[in-house]
C-alpha cells in the first residue's frame, strides 16, 4: 500500500497498458456470468477464509454486493487474491473487474495509475496501541514522549511516525522490524512501549497478544488511509454501478433497510424508501444504471446494508470489535455520506 517503488513500477506497467482497458465491463461481466474481484490474500476482517474456505470480510462483502446488484446473487463472484505488488496490474490487464483490496485512495493512484475510486468503504489511518498496565494513564499519543515505538520498516508508517513526533516536538525511539510478525512478537514481549500501524491492523494484532485487555488503541489518527474499491478508468457505466452499489449500501443503512426487513420495507409508506427499493411506479433509476429496478433489494438481501457488513466483519459481531468511529453514518458523527438516490 505504501511503497513508492511499487507505485513507480505500477505506473511503468500502466504506460504499457493504457490502451487495454476496454469499454463494456458490465456486458463482459454479464456474458461470463460472474464478477471477478481482486481481494487481499489475507487480512483479518477484510478478506480471509472461513473454516469452509469461503471468503469473508468487508472487502469481500463489497464484491458480493456488486455481484448481487447485477445478478441478484451475491455468490456470482470469483475472487482473485492479490498481493500489494500485483493488484494494480491485475486490474489494468483486465484480470479482475473490480479491485476491493484495502487500497488507499490517493491522487497518484487516481491519475497516474489510471484508477477510479468508487468511494471509501473504510476510513483507516495510522494509530497507536500501548500497554495500559505498563504505561498507566496514557490516553493520548501526545503523552508518548520518550517512548520506544515498534514499527515495520520501509513503509510510510515509519515516515508518518517520524513526522508526527517531530511536528509535536516529542522524543521517541523507533524499534524497527522488517516483518510484521517480528514487530508483533517484540511488542508482545514488552520491548517497546507502543506499537504503530493502521488502526484496523492494531485491532487485529491485539487479538493475538497474550493479554489483549491490557492494551488500548489510542484515539489519535496520524495519517489518512481512506480504503476503497476501484475500477479501471474509461468505463463510466461500470464505474457508476460500483459507485452506486456503495451508495446503496449506505442509503439502506440510513433508511433502516436491513437484510431481515427488506421485503417488508417494500410496502413502506415512505416515498424515499419506495424510490430506493424500486417499487415506485414507472421508476427508471435501476434501468438507467444498466441494472434492474430492484437492484437495491438484491444488494441488501445478499449482504445486508453497510452497517450490517461492518458489524459482521470488523465490528461488534466479529472478534475485532472495531468501533464505527469515522465509519459511522454522517448522521451519527461519522464520515459515511451517501449521495441521494433519486
Amino acid at each position: 500500500m505504501k511503497n513508492t517503488l511499487k507505485v513507480v513500477l505500477g505506473a511503468a506497467a500502466l504506460g504499457l497498458m493504457a490502451s487495454v482497458a476496454s469499454a463494456g465491463t458490465l456486458e463482459d461481466v454479464k456474458a461470463k456470468g460472474f464478477v471477478q474481484c481482486g481481494v487481499n490474500t489475507a487480512l483479518a476482517g477484510f478478506s480471509a477464509p472461513d473454516d469452509k474456505g469461503n471468503w469473508t470480510g468487508l472487502d469481500v462483502d463489497f464484491c458480493r454486493a456488486v455481484a448481487a446488484a447485477i445478478f441478484g446473487d451475491g455468490n456470482k463472484v470469483k475472487f482473485t487474491p492479490l498481493s500489494a505488488k500485483d493488484r494494480f496490474t491485475a486490474l489494468q490487464s483486465g484480470e479482475v473487474d473490480l479491485l476491493s483490496r484495502n487500497t488507499t485512495w490517493t491522487i497518484q493512484r487516481d491519475t497516474a495509475l489510471g484508477l477510479n475510486f468508487a468511494g471509501v468503504t473504510y476510513y483507516d489511518g495510522q494509530g497507536f496501541m500501548v500497554n495500559a498496565k505498563k504505561l498507566p494513564g496514557v490516553n493520548s499519543a501526545l503523552q508518548l514522549s520518550g517512548a520506544s515505538v515498534c514499527v515495520q520498516s520501509g513503509t510510510t508508517t515509519e515516515l508518518n511516525l517520524a513526522d508526527y513526533f517531530k511536528a509535536n516536538n516529542l522524543e521517541y525511539n523507533p524499534v524497527v522490524f522488517e516483518k510484521v510478525e517480528e514487530a508483533n512478537a517484540a511488542y508482545d514481549s514488552g520491548r517497546c512501549d507502543a506499537y504503530t500501524t493502521d488502526q484496523s491492523g492494531l485491532y487485529a494484532i491485539r487479538l493475538t497478544l497474550a493479554a489483549p485487555d491490557d492494551h488500548v488503541v489510542l484515539p489519535e489518527i496520524i495519517s489518512k488511509e481512506p480504503l476503497g474499491p476501484s475500477v479501471r478508468q474509461g468505463d463510466d457505466k461500470w464505474f457508476d454501478i460500483v459507485k452506486w452499489t456503495y451508495y446503496a449500501l449506505l442509503t439502506a443503512e440510513e433508511l433502516g433497510i436491513t437484510q431481515a426487513n427488506v421485503d417488508e420495507m417494500k410496502n413502506s409508506a415512505s416515498p424515499e424508501i419506495k424510490r430506493v427499493l424500486g417499487v415506485e411506479a414507472e421508476t427508471k433509476i435501476g434501468t438507467d444504471l444498466g441494472l434492474d429496478n430492484d437492484w437495491v433489494v438484491k444488494i441488501v438481501k445478499a449482504t445486508g446494508n453497510y452497517g450490517e457488513i461492518f458489524e459482521r466483519n470488523v465490528g461488534s459481531g466479529s472478534p475485532l470489535k472495531i468501533a464505527r468511529g469515522l465509519n459511522g453514518l454522517w448522521t451519527k458523527g461519522g464520515l459515511q455520506y451517501a449521495m441521494p438516490i433519486r
Binding site: 490474500t41 489475507a42 487480512l43 483479518a44 476482517g45 478478506s47 480471509a48 477464509p49 472461513d50 473454516d51 487474491p81 510478525e181 508482545d188 487485529a204 487479538l207 493475538t208 497478544l209 497474550a210 466479529s318 472478534p319 475485532l320
Partner: peptide
Amino acid sequence: VKQNLADANWATPQTA
C-alpha cells in the same frame, strides 16, 4: 496456513 492465520475467528496468541 498463513492465509488462515488472518481469520479473525481464530486469532489467538497460539494460532500462528
